[in-house]
Nucleic acid binder design. Structure first.
Length: 155
DNA sequence: GCCAACGTTGGC
DNA sequence: GCCAACGTTGGC
């Protein structure tokens, strides 16, 4: 069992959107970075823990806890010329980009990025490293514990 | 809107 | 295979 942090722009897909979806589950599409794709393709397993992070918004931070709900499969949006994620070099025979399903599990408090930066347990977290832009990044068990604790805290 | 950091592209 | 130019990310 591993842990991950996945970034989503809430204007596109927010944690609330996933909670409102059938079975609280959504397809994670639109990843167009090879390192992030490889995590989905090679390492992420159903049941892995996911920190659902809101980026590019007024208050970036962890919006809820989720989990990986499927193995990898081709991202449909790469084949759709009308999609902004369309990739002319991708074919059905040789897809380039992968999706996985993600299920929302628990919404506690919203944990802002500013607060994450103050937690000593998170000082080495990939997300918080200077220049880190990965939309999917690994989270250690200790980091997971520290974040979940703050998400479940009363204040 | 700015800009630092990083990834990708393409000419050579 | 190098590397300059360009595009993107994402916090501020």
């Amino acid at each position: 069992m591993r842990y991950w942090l996945m970034k989503s722009e809430p204007d596109e897909v927010s944690f609330d959107d996933v909670l409102a979806s059938p079975r609280h589950t959504t397809a994670w599409f639109g990843v167009r970075n090879y390192q992030a794709r490889n995590f989905m393709r090679d390492q992420m397993q159903p049941g892995d823990g996911v920190l659902f992070y809101h980026s590019s918004c007024a208050v970036p931070g962890v919006a809820g806890i989720a989990e990986v709900a499927s193995g990898p499969y081709p991202d449909e949006s790469q084949f759709d010329p009308a999609s902004k994620y369309f990739d002319p070099k991708a074919t059905r025979e040789q897809p380039r980009w992968m999706s996985i399903d993600v299920t929302a599990v628990e919404q506690g408090r919203y944990l802002p990025l500013t607060e994450m930066r103050e937690l000593p347990a998170l000082e080495d977290m990939v997300l918080l490293r200077k220049g880190s832009r990965l939309s999917i990044s690994p989270v250690t068990a200790d980091e997971w514990k520290a974040v979940v604790k703050r998400v479940r805290a009363k204040a």
